[in-house]
Amino acid sequence: MSYEVKQQVVAPIRNAFTYLIERNGDRPATRYEEATIDLQPTENFHYRPLWDPAHEIYDVDYSALKLSDPYSFLDPRQYYYFPYVVNRAGLLESFGASLSYLESRGLLAALDSSWSEVMSHEILPLRHYEAGAQLITQLGSRFAYGTSIEQAASFSAFDRMGLAQMISRVGISLESGSSEILGEAKHAWISSPNLQGLRRMVEELLIEGDWAIALMGLDQIDRIIYPLVWMHLDDVAVKSGAGAFSLIAQHFATWYKDQRKWLDALIRAWVADPVYGLANTAILSEAVTTSSRRAERAVAEFAEAFRPLDANCPATVAELASAARSALSALGIEGK
């Protein structure tokens, strides 16, 4: 059976899925909207989890932070899987190109001893920080309510695994293809006194059951450690002729700017919620107060090791922590 198609343009009978039309009117939806809004089931779950009989399979009570409409948060980057992987394939490819260049010119091996010491014993252990960050963020991937939030958390968790691997690859490159140095880095993560504040905070966030509170705790560290390690030290590196570090750091800084976009938008949505806004703000303020001081102390201890490169590092940490508090304040979160 074959048909000859009439030479005509067939008009659509509708422009989008009904639930998108109900939200946006009868206009064509973007692929981000189609891939995100209302995907998560909301009702008529059949069985309570054997691993948590107190909750439903998806449950608003997995977090104290709530949105009256979960889709009042939409990822400003509009990442669904396809643009996300294309963007990150680009990031990883350019990181790989930087690393190959550094390897081929022997630039990592040529770093002076104070830099290579910092790389081996301070920067490389951060691969474990990132691995912990993956686990912390992953909780939101499973337990956030609504696809827009969990999707952004899912990508962020996957990113953290990617960042852990990027740092590890720097280590492999430093040792010309061996992984021995990674063993030393792990030893430092476990036993160097200046890393223990950081490690302790990560471990404690891993037993925080509220995915959003845990993520906010992690973010208090990120807000200081990212600008410190991947931006401030980058400046120091450029000034002190350690361009190899700079070539690496730029990719992490790029990622962090991207991370800020969705997480700050989520905080804005929590604060602005017409029903839960005030309660969310109070909960966020308390969580931030608890964790931001701890994060500042932990990063300050960590940053002691950077003194040989930059005597001002401790002061920088205080400035960055203050900037982080101002940034949160601008979002409506006042720490005490």
Binding site: S168, R169, W189, R199, E203
Partner: peptide
Amino acid sequence: MAKLSMKERYAALTRDLDWDFDY
């Protein structure tokens, strides 16, 4: 030093990221 095999590289980039918790 020999280049890492695919298997060693994979281990270094995945399971070797784990550590034993103390806190």
